[in-house]
């Protein structure tokens, strides 16, 4: 049997991984909530951001956390441009087309990274990569604890942007009723692109939080994006608190499944939950009725 301490530690570890999942899912759910599209390129965009963090550290010597203020506007601009000039025009507004265009984008991005950086797995080690914090009898990884804190703060910031700014109001208006928003003078394609940009900005933060303890290779995004889909579906497509809670929950589930079933089956629990939620309650636990 496992001692309660091991189980507790696994749960806390899961909570910390889950915070980063939540951040990735936040971008995905925001894009879904407003544009009603599933962004298959989300994983590849995360990989891009992770490589950017790695490049900043390896070539320019910038600390991953210091990259956050640089990478966030950069990823925002990338997301804005992609939605405004590629995804929007290419998909003619049809849902099936959007799936395909974002899939095509993800294939291109992933393989451009592969062509540039080869398939090697890269890590960066900072002074604090392996630092631990003692919490009573439990030892917790310092960078991952920071990840948890920052993820919660970013979720709060995003909530504030959406609820307390004019742009946020416009985003919510477009999400609720696109045609009406257009009639009162909101530039819908612009708001779409802003939303996509915000989703990518979340990825920038997630990448900076991940890199001190994780590795990057051109295919890494796929693993995260499936988990992020699960989180989004579980939390309810388009729900921001749902993404945070869903992410934390999925992190714990993965960690416990890994503990009880072994590493190779660790992700099985996630996908079974994913299928079960889709089949039984596709609107998720916090989502409004579709």
């Amino acid at each position: 049997m496992y001692s309660p301490q091991i189980i507790l530690e696994a749960m806390l570890n899961g909570l910390m991984t889950g915070a980063v999942y939540a951040l990735i899912a936040l971008g995905l759910t925001l894009i879904y909530g407003v544009l009603h599209i599933i962004n298959f390129a989300h994983g590849a965009l995360l990989t891009c951001a992770m490589f950017a963090v790695w490049v900043a550290w390896a070539w320019l010597g910038i600390d991953p956390y210091a990259v956050i203020p640089l990478l966030v506007p950069l990823m925002f601009a990338l997301g804005y441009g992609l939605q405004r000039f590629v995804i929007g025009p290419a998909s003619h507004g049809d849902d099936g087309n959007i799936l395909l265009v974002t899939l095509g984008l993800s294939i291109v991005l992933e393989n451009v990274l592969l062509a540039t950086f080869q398939s090697d797995t890269r890590t960066l080690d900072t002074d604090y990569s392996f630092q631990v914090v003692a919490l009573g009898p439990l030892l917790l990884s310092f960078p991952r604890l920071i990840g948890l804190a920052v993820a919660v703060v970013v979720t709060g910031l995003l909530w504030l942007v959406l609820n307390r700014t004019d742009t946020g109001k416009a985003i919510r208006a477009v999400a609720r009723e696109k045609l009406g928003a257009n009639l009162v003078g909101i530039d819908v394609p612009h708001i779409y692109a802003v939303t996509f940009g915000l989703g990518c900005a979340c990825l920038a933060v997630a990448a900076c939080l991940l890199m001190p303890t994780f590795y990057v290779n051109p295919r890494i995004g796929g693993a995260f994006v499936l988990v992020a889909f699960t989180v989004v579906v579980l939390g309810g497509m388009g729900s921001i608190p749902g993404a945070l809670l869903g992410g934390l929950f999925i992190g714990v589930v993965e960690s416990l499944c890994g503990l009880f079933l072994g590493d190779s089956l660790g992700q099985l629990g996630i996908f079974l939950i994913f299928i079960a939620v889709l089949l039984v309650r596709p609107t998720g636990l916090f989502g409004a009725k579709a």
Binding site: A90, G104, I107, N111, L114
Partner: peptide, 22 residues
């Protein structure tokens, strides 16, 4: 020998096909 070059072509063709040749 650039790895992934054929897949870059696949992805580009997919986006172009959806955009211009439905």
């Amino acid at each position: 020998r650039i790895p992934g070059i054929d897949l870059i072509v696949f992805g580009t063709v997919l986006v172009l096909a959806v955009a211009f040749a439905r």
